[in-house]
Design a protein around this nucleic acid. Structure first.
Lengths: 131, 131
DNA sequence: CCACTGTACTATCTTTAATAGTACGGTTAA
DNA sequence: TTAACCGTACTATTAAAGATAGTACAGTGG
């Protein structure tokens, strides 16, 4: 189920995180389903439990899973996962707008740029500096 | 003119980069003006020339300055600096839109979010500037 | 109580980042 | 051409951060 490449440039715990994110995203792991325990998964892939724990901790901090001490780790409700991702993405989006404004890019250009990007238009070779 | 704190968490070359960005942004250093040479600045702040070179290299990669081997480092033309910054910001902006789309956020919501954010900026400005 | 669960803390090892030292190549003017 | 500037490339050393492991402690439920 879970595997990793010890020779990868990517740290093991990240490889594990990536796989769980996919499994959760594809609903292979369903909301409130229990994940393998830290030790169980650790021994099945022959790695230190702490590395698994680190992966789980990261997944929890991103709201993919929630943990109940003494019981186990569980997949978060669907809405939780999505809304957490979206709110992070929205925050980045807002920040990028503020950045543009700070650089003197006019509102109309920002709106235009938004529409172009949504349409998938790549060529926007217009004057970006003047409003 | 240039200074740094060796005990800062921020690496020295970054501290130097930050200062030059400000000086260039404020037009204290004007387009095509020559920067102190790597060795000159290094000895004046008592640091290794290579650290200064690294700062200059970074400034060059971001188009704040351009270098002419054998001659020196010079402030880039104004438009170059601005447009480079803007194009980087635009790229981040576009990526953040694509991220939102990937998460299933609808176009109309993205447009709305854009307007809200732009509005928020204006409101803030109006509150701080007496009108 | 026992066998599970997660968690916190520290230690070690590896990798990366930051800085320094040295040597090389271009430019300019005498 | 030579001397005194300039940037640049390369390698070595040191400092900091990151990844993993080992061990011990705490909650849960039969």
């Amino acid at each position: 189920m879970i595997h990793f490449d010890p020779n990868s440039v990517k740290p093991i715990y990240e490889q594990i995180v990536d796989q769980f994110i996919k499994l959760i995203g594809n609903q292979v792991l369903k909301p409130d389903e229990q994940l393998p325990s830290v030790r169980e998964l650790a021994s099945s892939v022959r790695i230190n439990p702490n590395t698994i724990q680190r992966a789980y901790k990261l997944l929890e901090s991103r709201n993919y899973i929630y943990s109940v001490p003494g019981k186990g780790n569980f997949v978060s409700p669907n809405q939780t996962v999505l809304s957490a991702e979206i709110s992070r993405a929205e925050k980045r989006f807002k920040n990028s707008i503020l950045e543009l404004k700070k650089l003197g890019v006019g509102n109309s250009h920002i709106v235009e740029l938004t529409h172009m990007t949504l349409k998938g238009v790549e060529n926007h070779a217009k004057n970006t500096i003047l409003e």
